[in-house]
């Protein structure tokens, strides 16, 4: 994939402040980033914008459905969506669920920006150009 092509990024987290600074950081890095603070609106944004990479928080108590469900729905829309799960939850079956539903990676919160940056850089290689 061409490096100069602007990549679209979707950040899903029920904590708006997290969405806010993550967006800001990636914008500065040259991405076009979108934010969503619940699963439903994340799926809406995905349908509309078709972001290349999604960062999804799993534990979202205020969302109609949680991160795993969001992942499932996004994958239903686009089988090739590149999704990175970002969460504290480390219960084994949730992690396995994410893997089974096609998440590319599972990152543990809280993330150092460098970690996140590296993960997104790696994920870039999985993005299929349309």
């Amino acid at each position: 994939m061409e490096n100069n092509q602007q990549l679209k990024l979707l950040i899903v987290d029920d904590e708006s402040a997290i969405v806010h600074f993550t967006k800001k950081i990636f914008d500065k890095k040259g991405f076009i980033s979108f934010g969503a603070t619940d699963g439903a609106s994340a799926v809406e944004v995905f349908k509309k914008e078709r972001p290349h990479i999604c960062l999804i928080d799993i534990h979202m108590p205020f969302s109609p459905f949680d991160g795993v469900e969001t992942l499932k729905q996004i994958k239903k829309i686009d089988q090739n969506a590149v999704c990175l799960m970002v969460s504290r939850i480390t219960e084994k079956d949730r992690v396995t669920d994410c893997r089974n539903f096609g998440a590319l990676a599972y990152l543990l919160k809280p993330l150092d920006f460098d970690d996140l940056d590296r993960a997104v850089e790696k994920a870039r290689a999985y993005v299929k150009t349309s």
Partner: peptide, 8 residues
């Protein structure tokens, strides 16, 4: 190393 449970 670090905080990646699976992936890549």
């Amino acid at each position: 190393r670090g905080r990646i449970l699976f992936g890549f």
